[in-house]
Design a binder for these strands. Sequence first.
DNA 1: ATATTTGTTCTACAAAAGAGAGCAAAAGAA
DNA 2: TTCTTTTGCTCTCTTTTGTAGAACAAATAT
Lengths: 110, 110
Amino acid sequence: MKGDVLGEFEEIILLIVGVLGQDAYGLGIRDELEKQTGRSAAIGAVHATLNRLQEKGYVESGMTEGTQERGGRRKRVFQMTGLGKKALIESKDVRVNLWSQVPDLNIGKV
Amino acid sequence: MKGDVLGEFEEIILLIVGVLGQDAYGLGIRDELEKQTGRSAAIGAVHATLNRLQEKGYVESGMTEGTQERGGRRKRVFQMTGLGKKALIESKDVRVNLWSQVPDLNIGKV
DNA sequence: ATATTTGTTCTACAAAAGAGAGCAAAAGAA
DNA sequence: TTCTTTTGCTCTCTTTTGTAGAACAAATAT
Protein backbone atom coordinates (compact mmCIF):
# COMPACT_ATOMS: atom_id res chain seq x y z
CA MET A 1 0.00 0.00 0.00
CA LYS A 2 1.17 3.46 -0.66
CA GLY A 3 3.21 4.32 2.41
CA ASP A 4 1.29 5.88 5.23
CA VAL A 5 -2.30 5.53 4.13
CA LEU A 6 -4.50 4.12 6.87
CA GLY A 7 -6.72 1.23 5.87
CA GLU A 8 -10.39 1.53 6.66
CA PHE A 9 -10.41 -0.86 9.60
CA GLU A 10 -7.09 0.46 10.84
CA GLU A 11 -8.56 3.93 11.00
CA ILE A 12 -11.61 2.81 12.93
CA ILE A 13 -9.49 0.88 15.41
CA LEU A 14 -7.15 3.82 15.83
CA LEU A 15 -10.13 6.07 16.54
CA ILE A 16 -11.43 3.61 19.13
CA VAL A 17 -8.03 3.64 20.81
CA GLY A 18 -8.31 7.40 20.95
CA VAL A 19 -11.81 7.25 22.37
CA LEU A 20 -10.86 4.78 25.08
CA GLY A 21 -7.81 6.74 26.14
CA GLN A 22 -6.09 4.97 29.02
CA ASP A 23 -7.99 1.72 28.89
CA ALA A 24 -7.50 0.61 25.31
CA TYR A 25 -6.72 -3.08 25.09
CA GLY A 26 -7.72 -5.91 22.75
CA LEU A 27 -11.02 -7.18 24.10
CA GLY A 28 -12.10 -3.76 25.32
CA ILE A 29 -11.47 -2.31 21.89
CA ARG A 30 -13.51 -5.08 20.34
CA ASP A 31 -16.42 -4.31 22.66
CA GLU A 32 -16.21 -0.59 22.11
CA LEU A 33 -16.10 -1.13 18.37
CA GLU A 34 -19.35 -3.03 18.53
CA LYS A 35 -20.93 -0.49 20.85
CA GLN A 36 -19.92 2.51 18.75
CA THR A 37 -20.40 1.16 15.26
CA GLY A 38 -22.60 -1.91 15.59
CA ARG A 39 -19.87 -3.79 13.83
CA SER A 40 -18.53 -7.02 15.27
CA ALA A 41 -15.03 -8.31 14.72
CA ALA A 42 -13.10 -11.41 15.68
CA ILE A 43 -10.54 -10.79 18.38
CA GLY A 44 -7.79 -11.96 16.06
CA ALA A 45 -8.71 -9.31 13.54
CA VAL A 46 -8.48 -6.60 16.19
CA HIS A 47 -5.08 -7.72 17.41
CA ALA A 48 -3.69 -8.14 13.92
CA THR A 49 -4.74 -4.58 13.18
CA LEU A 50 -3.28 -3.24 16.42
CA ASN A 51 0.00 -4.91 15.61
CA ARG A 52 0.05 -3.32 12.19
CA LEU A 53 -0.73 0.07 13.68
CA GLN A 54 2.12 -0.36 16.09
CA GLU A 55 4.53 -1.33 13.32
CA LYS A 56 3.57 1.85 11.53
CA GLY A 57 4.17 3.91 14.64
CA TYR A 58 0.58 5.01 15.10
CA VAL A 59 0.16 3.39 18.51
CA GLU A 60 2.41 2.27 21.33
CA SER A 61 1.73 -0.48 23.85
CA GLY A 62 2.82 -1.83 27.18
CA MET A 63 1.71 -4.51 29.62
CA THR A 64 -0.25 -3.62 32.75
CA GLU A 65 -0.21 -5.35 36.08
CA GLY A 66 -3.01 -7.87 36.55
CA THR A 67 -6.19 -6.63 38.22
CA GLN A 68 -8.08 -8.36 40.98
CA GLU A 69 -11.18 -9.26 39.04
CA ARG A 70 -12.10 -12.79 38.18
CA GLY A 71 -9.48 -13.98 35.74
CA GLY A 72 -8.11 -10.47 35.52
CA ARG A 73 -4.78 -11.08 33.92
CA ARG A 74 -2.31 -8.64 32.43
CA LYS A 75 -3.39 -6.57 29.48
CA ARG A 76 -1.52 -5.07 26.64
CA VAL A 77 -2.76 -1.48 26.61
CA PHE A 78 -2.41 0.75 23.58
CA GLN A 79 -2.19 4.48 23.20
CA MET A 80 -2.17 6.67 20.17
CA THR A 81 1.09 8.38 19.22
CA GLY A 82 1.48 11.86 17.81
CA LEU A 83 2.05 10.28 14.44
CA GLY A 84 -1.23 8.41 14.79
CA LYS A 85 -3.11 11.56 15.62
CA LYS A 86 -1.53 13.29 12.67
CA ALA A 87 -2.61 10.50 10.33
CA LEU A 88 -6.17 10.74 11.64
CA ILE A 89 -6.28 14.46 11.11
CA GLU A 90 -4.97 14.15 7.58
CA SER A 91 -7.53 11.52 6.77
CA LYS A 92 -10.25 13.65 8.31
CA ASP A 93 -9.27 16.71 6.31
CA VAL A 94 -9.42 14.80 3.03
CA ARG A 95 -12.86 13.44 3.82
CA VAL A 96 -14.34 16.67 5.08
CA ASN A 97 -13.10 18.36 1.95
CA LEU A 98 -14.61 15.78 -0.35
CA TRP A 99 -17.89 15.56 1.54
CA SER A 100 -18.41 19.25 1.12
CA GLN A 101 -18.25 18.84 -2.64
CA VAL A 102 -20.67 15.96 -3.02
CA PRO A 103 -24.27 17.14 -3.39
CA ASP A 104 -26.95 15.68 -1.12
CA LEU A 105 -24.50 14.16 1.28
CA ASN A 106 -26.21 15.85 4.20
CA ILE A 107 -23.23 17.69 5.47
CA GLY A 108 -24.00 18.98 8.92
CA LYS A 109 -21.96 20.03 11.87
CA VAL A 110 -19.14 17.91 13.23
CA MET B 1 -14.88 -8.21 4.48
CA LYS B 2 -17.99 -7.95 6.49
CA GLY B 3 -20.67 -7.29 3.90
CA ASP B 4 -21.06 -3.69 2.88
CA VAL B 5 -18.08 -1.97 4.44
CA LEU B 6 -16.30 0.30 2.01
CA GLY B 7 -12.53 -0.06 1.80
CA GLU B 8 -10.44 3.06 2.21
CA PHE B 9 -9.54 3.53 -1.44
CA GLU B 10 -13.01 2.50 -2.55
CA GLU B 11 -14.48 5.23 -0.40
CA ILE B 12 -12.18 7.90 -1.80
CA ILE B 13 -12.89 6.86 -5.37
CA LEU B 14 -16.62 6.80 -4.70
CA LEU B 15 -16.39 10.30 -3.26
CA ILE B 16 -14.51 11.50 -6.33
CA VAL B 17 -17.23 10.04 -8.53
CA GLY B 18 -19.71 12.04 -6.49
CA VAL B 19 -17.66 15.20 -6.80
CA LEU B 20 -17.29 14.88 -10.55
CA GLY B 21 -20.97 14.20 -11.11
CA GLN B 22 -21.63 13.76 -14.83
CA ASP B 23 -18.07 13.55 -16.00
CA ALA B 24 -16.66 10.73 -13.90
CA TYR B 25 -14.54 8.36 -15.95
CA GLY B 26 -11.28 6.52 -15.39
CA LEU B 27 -8.58 8.99 -16.32
CA GLY B 28 -10.58 11.98 -15.12
CA ILE B 29 -11.09 10.33 -11.76
CA ARG B 30 -7.38 9.65 -11.52
CA ASP B 31 -6.61 13.31 -12.21
CA GLU B 32 -9.23 14.58 -9.77
CA LEU B 33 -7.91 12.21 -7.12
CA GLU B 34 -4.48 13.72 -7.47
CA LYS B 35 -5.82 17.25 -7.50
CA GLN B 36 -8.04 16.77 -4.45
CA THR B 37 -5.84 14.60 -2.28
CA GLY B 38 -2.33 14.92 -3.66
CA ARG B 39 -2.35 11.19 -3.99
CA SER B 40 -1.34 9.55 -7.27
CA ALA B 41 -2.59 6.20 -8.45
CA ALA B 42 -1.97 3.97 -11.43
CA ILE B 43 -4.84 3.93 -13.87
CA GLY B 44 -5.26 0.18 -13.37
CA ALA B 45 -5.81 0.74 -9.66
CA VAL B 46 -8.58 3.20 -10.36
CA HIS B 47 -10.37 0.96 -12.83
CA ALA B 48 -10.07 -2.12 -10.66
CA THR B 49 -11.65 -0.18 -7.82
CA LEU B 50 -14.41 1.19 -10.04
CA ASN B 51 -15.23 -2.32 -11.19
CA ARG B 52 -15.46 -3.52 -7.62
CA LEU B 53 -17.69 -0.60 -6.69
CA GLN B 54 -19.94 -1.48 -9.58
CA GLU B 55 -20.13 -5.13 -8.54
CA LYS B 56 -21.26 -3.97 -5.13
CA GLY B 57 -23.91 -1.74 -6.64
CA TYR B 58 -22.39 1.54 -5.44
CA VAL B 59 -21.90 2.93 -8.94
CA GLU B 60 -23.37 2.38 -12.39
CA SER B 61 -21.68 3.00 -15.70
CA GLY B 62 -22.31 3.43 -19.40
CA MET B 63 -20.35 4.31 -22.52
CA THR B 64 -20.47 7.80 -24.03
CA GLU B 65 -20.10 8.77 -27.65
CA GLY B 66 -16.60 9.78 -28.66
CA THR B 67 -15.79 13.49 -28.62
CA GLN B 68 -14.03 15.41 -31.36
CA GLU B 69 -10.86 16.20 -29.47
CA ARG B 70 -7.52 14.74 -30.33
CA GLY B 71 -7.80 11.03 -29.66
CA GLY B 72 -11.14 11.59 -27.98
CA ARG B 73 -12.55 8.11 -27.87
CA ARG B 74 -15.52 6.71 -25.98
CA LYS B 75 -15.48 6.87 -22.22
CA ARG B 76 -17.04 4.69 -19.61
CA VAL B 77 -18.71 7.18 -17.31
CA PHE B 78 -19.69 6.32 -13.78
CA GLN B 79 -22.34 7.66 -11.47
CA MET B 80 -23.09 6.99 -7.86
CA THR B 81 -26.19 4.96 -7.02
CA GLY B 82 -28.51 5.51 -4.09
CA LEU B 83 -26.87 2.57 -2.41
CA GLY B 84 -23.49 4.21 -2.88
CA LYS B 85 -24.68 7.42 -1.34
CA LYS B 86 -26.15 5.53 1.56
CA ALA B 87 -22.86 3.75 2.18
CA LEU B 88 -21.00 7.08 2.18
CA ILE B 89 -23.43 8.59 4.64
CA GLU B 90 -23.13 5.64 6.97
CA SER B 91 -19.38 5.79 6.84
CA LYS B 92 -19.48 9.51 7.46
CA ASP B 93 -21.77 9.17 10.47
CA VAL B 94 -19.49 6.64 12.11
CA ARG B 95 -16.46 8.84 11.63
CA VAL B 96 -18.09 12.06 12.76
CA ASN B 97 -19.30 10.29 15.85
CA LEU B 98 -15.88 8.89 16.69
CA TRP B 99 -14.03 12.11 15.92
CA SER B 100 -16.18 13.95 18.39
CA GLN B 101 -15.05 11.60 21.14
CA VAL B 102 -11.32 11.77 20.54
CA PRO B 103 -9.69 14.63 22.45
CA ASP B 104 -7.48 17.07 20.57
CA LEU B 105 -8.60 15.96 17.16
CA ASN B 106 -9.39 19.53 16.23
CA ILE B 107 -12.99 18.98 15.39
CA GLY B 108 -14.23 21.96 13.48
CA LYS B 109 -17.08 22.68 11.18
CA VAL B 110 -17.84 20.53 8.17
C1' DA C 1 -0.63 4.70 -43.85
C1' DT C 2 1.28 5.42 -39.44
C1' DA C 3 2.20 8.03 -35.37
C1' DT C 4 0.09 10.17 -31.42
C1' DT C 5 -3.33 10.78 -28.01
C1' DT C 6 -7.01 9.23 -25.16
C1' DG C 7 -9.06 5.42 -22.94
C1' DT C 8 -10.18 0.83 -21.14
C1' DT C 9 -9.15 -4.16 -20.01
C1' DC C 10 -6.31 -7.81 -18.43
C1' DT C 11 -2.97 -9.96 -15.46
C1' DA C 12 -0.29 -10.11 -11.23
C1' DC C 13 1.02 -9.44 -6.74
C1' DA C 14 1.28 -7.10 -2.06
C1' DA C 15 -1.16 -5.57 1.85
C1' DA C 16 -5.14 -5.33 4.79
C1' DA C 17 -9.33 -7.50 6.65
C1' DG C 18 -11.21 -11.12 9.00
C1' DA C 19 -11.97 -15.59 11.42
C1' DG C 20 -11.04 -18.78 14.87
C1' DA C 21 -8.19 -22.24 17.21
C1' DG C 22 -4.93 -22.48 20.69
C1' DC C 23 -2.34 -21.07 24.56
C1' DA C 24 -1.48 -18.55 29.05
C1' DA C 25 -2.46 -16.65 33.50
C1' DA C 26 -5.27 -15.40 37.38
C1' DA C 27 -9.11 -16.36 40.52
C1' DG C 28 -12.62 -19.15 42.53
C1' DA C 29 -14.47 -23.68 43.75
C1' DA C 30 -13.78 -28.31 45.37
C1' DT D 1 -3.89 -28.48 46.13
C1' DT D 2 -6.04 -29.37 41.71
C1' DC D 3 -9.68 -28.36 38.44
C1' DT D 4 -12.70 -25.10 36.24
C1' DT D 5 -13.93 -20.66 34.65
C1' DT D 6 -12.86 -16.19 33.05
C1' DT D 7 -10.00 -12.95 30.82
C1' DG D 8 -6.76 -12.08 27.46
C1' DC D 9 -3.21 -12.56 23.84
C1' DT D 10 -0.74 -15.07 19.87
C1' DC D 11 -0.53 -17.84 15.76
C1' DT D 12 -2.08 -19.46 11.32
C1' DC D 13 -4.90 -19.28 7.43
C1' DT D 14 -8.16 -17.45 3.83
C1' DT D 15 -10.54 -13.76 1.40
C1' DT D 16 -10.86 -8.92 -0.09
C1' DT D 17 -8.68 -4.58 -1.16
C1' DG D 18 -5.08 -1.92 -2.88
C1' DT D 19 -1.67 -1.14 -6.44
C1' DA D 20 0.90 -1.28 -10.68
C1' DG D 21 1.69 -1.64 -15.44
C1' DA D 22 1.46 -3.90 -19.86
C1' DA D 23 -1.61 -4.76 -23.58
C1' DC D 24 -5.05 -3.46 -26.45
C1' DA D 25 -8.56 -0.31 -28.92
C1' DA D 26 -10.25 3.67 -31.28
C1' DA D 27 -10.01 8.31 -32.88
C1' DT D 28 -7.35 12.27 -34.81
C1' DA D 29 -3.34 14.39 -37.02
C1' DT D 30 0.40 14.25 -40.28
